[in-house]
Design a protein around this nucleic acid. Structure first.
Lengths: 147, 147
DNA sequence: ATTGTTAGTTTACATCTGTAACCTGGAACA
DNA sequence: TGTTCCAGGTTACAGATGTAAACTAACAAT
């Protein structure tokens, strides 16, 4: 699995990736059917997305005979982390905490997920700063609003 | 502050919003200078983005005399939550936990941020499911890969 | 009144995205 | 051995996005 960092997967492409990741690998027919089922897309749409993903090196086409096999080149976890990082990189550092809080509140998490998060937090608490600085503007070191 | 849900703020626009949110409100000149400083953008670029944001109802222009004042219509926190939600909505539910874990590891969090997260997690742990199901494909109830 | 300066508005334009039709070469069938 | 079908490839096309030039209306200085 290659670094998902440099590959930008768009929303539609992301849908295809989810299918590929979940199936592990698949033929275009299987993917086309899955996408038709899931999103109502026409065959062409899935084909196009698949090609763009191949071009981006997110998916590879293997096999010698005609119904080729498509499989992921980038890992799901890495891609998800990259996407999340990308999101937080564009937000005010000062607000990351409350955003994460909101996400945790909203998402369904398993007992072990929660245990892992608690573990990480406990560790992180040891040398956590009293407060995180706003990094939106130079000079400006804090955001006014705060609700 | 209006619902940030329906407004899609693009990456570049997001940069402008950060400046506006941080400044609370500002004249176009101040914003143009800030963006020039931060991103090296030409005046026009910031102007265009400002206008698009106004059209999207993310920013409003107030004042009667010439140097008008621009101020946010959507809140920062709401927008950030909306963006985060949007991201997680497109990812496999089963992987949300590990993604959040990765984010927490990477980001800087203050002591109080951590305390809040721990608080939320403790509460959530009470009735957490043993495991979260993959929601990528119909039928398919779990993702194979798992690293 | 005339002119320059700046805030605000329109227009531009290449690339990216979402979505899909159409074409082509080989495999399956008649 | 000509016809059909389909996987794979090419082209299309409108709307979004990043980035910015050009134009116009107000205000300030002469």
């Amino acid at each position: 699995m290659i670094d998902a960092k440099n590959v930008t997967i768009t929303d539609s492409e992301w849908e295809v990736m989810r299918a590929i990741w979940t199936m592990g690998q698949a033929t275009s027919r299987e993917l086309i059917d899955a996408m038709h089922e899931l999103k109502g897309w026409s065959d062409s749409t899935t084909k196009t997305l698949l090609h763009r993903l191949i071009k981006k090196n997110a998916v590879e086409q293997t096999g010698d005979s005609r119904p080729y096999t498509f499989k992921p080149v980038v890992g799901e976890k890495e891609s998800m982390s990259a996407a999340a990082d990308d999101l937080f990189d564009h937000m005010c550092a000062m607000r990351a905490g409350s955003t994460i809080a909101q996400v945790i509140k909203t998402r369904e998490l398993s007992k072990s997920d929660i245990a892992e998060l608690q573990q990480i937090l406990a560790e992180k608490a040891k040398d956590a700063p009293e407060m995180v600085q706003c990094n939106c503007l130079p000079g400006k070191m804090t955001c006014e609003e705060d609700s």
